[in-house]
Simulated scan of single mutants.
Amino acid sequence: MRECDPMGCGHFGAKRGNYKHNGVDLIKSHNDDIYAPFDCKINRFGKPYANDSNYDLVEIVGLGEWSDFRVKLMYVYPMFSVGATILKGQKLCTAQDIELKYGYNSGMQTIFILNFIKKINLLILKII
C-alpha cells in the first residue's frame, strides 16, 4: 500500500482536499501485469480525469459468487474488449506510468487504482 508522500496518503479515508479518499492505493511499477481478483467480465472503459485523456480506466463486474461487485481499475492499459470474460488470476491489464502526470520528482509512484464497489456498500481500492 502507498504510504504518505507529497501528493497525499494511500489509505482508505485519507484526506484528499475537501473529501476523504474512498479507496486504497497499491503500488505497482510501470508495465507491471495486473491480474483479475476474481472471475469477471469487462463492463466498460473510461478516463480517470475529465481533462487528461492519457490515462485509462477499466471497469469489471464479478461473476458467480462475486456478481455483487464492480471494480474500477485506473491508470491501466486495457487488454481485452468490453464483454470479455476473464478468469481469476488471469492477466487483466498492465499498469500505466502515473509519474508522467505528476512529475518524476513529485514523490508520486507509478500507480493503478482498483475500485471495489459492492451494490450497496462502496469500497474503492487504488492500486499504485
Rank of each mutant, 00 (worst) to 15 (best):
M1E: 02
E3Y: 02
C4S: 01
C4V: 00
C4F: 00
D5S: 03
D5L: 01
H11C: 06
H11Y: 15
H11L: 04
R16I: 07
G17C: 13
G17Q: 09
Y19I: 12
N22A: 10
V24H: 06
D25W: 03
L26N: 05
L26C: 05
I27R: 08
K28T: 08
K28I: 09
S29M: 06
H30F: 14
H30E: 13
H30D: 13
D32H: 12
I34H: 11
Y35D: 07
A36F: 08
A36H: 10
P37V: 06
F38Y: 14
F38D: 06
D39E: 07
D39C: 10
I42P: 10
R44V: 07
P48N: 09
P48R: 02
P48Q: 04
Y49E: 07
S53M: 12
Y55I: 02
D56M: 09
L57S: 06
E59H: 05
E59C: 10
G64N: 15
G64W: 12
E65A: 14
E65I: 10
R70N: 14
K72L: 10
L73F: 15
L73C: 09
Y75W: 09
P78A: 06
M79P: 01
V82N: 14
V82D: 15
T85M: 13
L87Q: 15
L87N: 15
Q90S: 12
L92W: 09
T94P: 00
Q96E: 02
E99S: 09
L100W: 03
Y102Q: 04
G103N: 09
N105Y: 12
N105T: 15
N105V: 01
S106T: 12
G107T: 00
G107V: 03
T110L: 04
F112R: 00
L114P: 00
L114W: 09
N115F: 11
I117F: 13
K118E: 14
N121F: 08
I124Y: 12
L125C: 08
L125T: 11
K126R: 06
K126H: 12
I127E: 01
I128L: 04
I128Y: 02
